[in-house]
Simulated scan of single mutants.
Amino acid sequence: MNRRDAIKNVALLLGTAISASTLAALEGCTGSGPRNYALEAPETKSILAEIAETIIPQTNTPGAKAAKVDEFILTMMQDCYEPKDQQILLDGLKKVDEASNKQYKKSFVDLTAEEKTAVLTEIDKERVAYNKRENKQKEDPTHYFQFIKELTLLGYFTSKPGATEALRYVAVPGKFEGCVPYKKGDKAWAM
């Protein structure tokens, strides 16, 4: 199985599709993308960590912060994405802060968990509307929140805490069991 097929399988497991730009970035990822030093700024990492933690909060399993998803997203952006996509993400993070300032008169990182969820819910509605619009062109840029959500899920469920604590995990090699009983509420299997 190649990397692209593995990523598609993870996306299906998570109940989402990965955008074409993310698939292209993963396929062409060389680990030596153009450096964008704005991605390395502490405030960029801070807001990204808070957004990821809002998407996958800590419950009885570790959240996105514990899995260091923010570092994963920034590494992927630096190493695999085009400069235009990196700029889309950076501009999007500014939009998240602008939305929180407009609604709550505070920076996103200073909001309560409920306020963060409210801000991101509105942004996600905007993302869905952007992706469903009638005049959408193939060359239109990916919505910034699409990048954030996809990379948060990918980073979390391929991290050690995500794969071993949020999902059921069996170390490979192991025996093959073709038919395993499933009870409603059981965790999904890690790959």
Rank of each mutant, 00 (worst) to 15 (best):
L153V: 01
Y169K: 07
V170N: 14
Y144T: 06
F157H: 11
L153D: 00
N135Q: 12
K125I: 06
E122Y: 02
E150I: 06
Y156C: 05
T121S: 09
A163V: 01
Q86K: 15
D91G: 14
V69W: 02
S107D: 11
C80S: 09
Q86H: 09
D91L: 14
T121P: 00
E139M: 07
D91P: 01
K68D: 14
D70G: 14
F157R: 02
Q137M: 11
D85F: 04
K149Y: 09
K94V: 13
Y104I: 03
C179G: 01
Q103V: 06
Y130D: 13
L89F: 13
D124E: 11
G185Q: 07
V180C: 04
L90F: 08
E150S: 05
L89S: 02
A113F: 07
D85H: 14
P161R: 07
I73H: 01
R133F: 04
R127E: 10
E115Q: 15
E165N: 12
V180L: 13
T121G: 08
I123S: 03
M77N: 03
E139W: 05
Q146L: 04
D140M: 08
P161K: 08
L154Q: 00
F72P: 01
N101F: 08
V109G: 02
K136F: 02
S100P: 06
E115V: 05
P83Q: 09
Q78H: 10
E122L: 13
G178T: 10
K125T: 09
F176E: 13
N135W: 04
V69K: 04
D97S: 08
K149H: 08
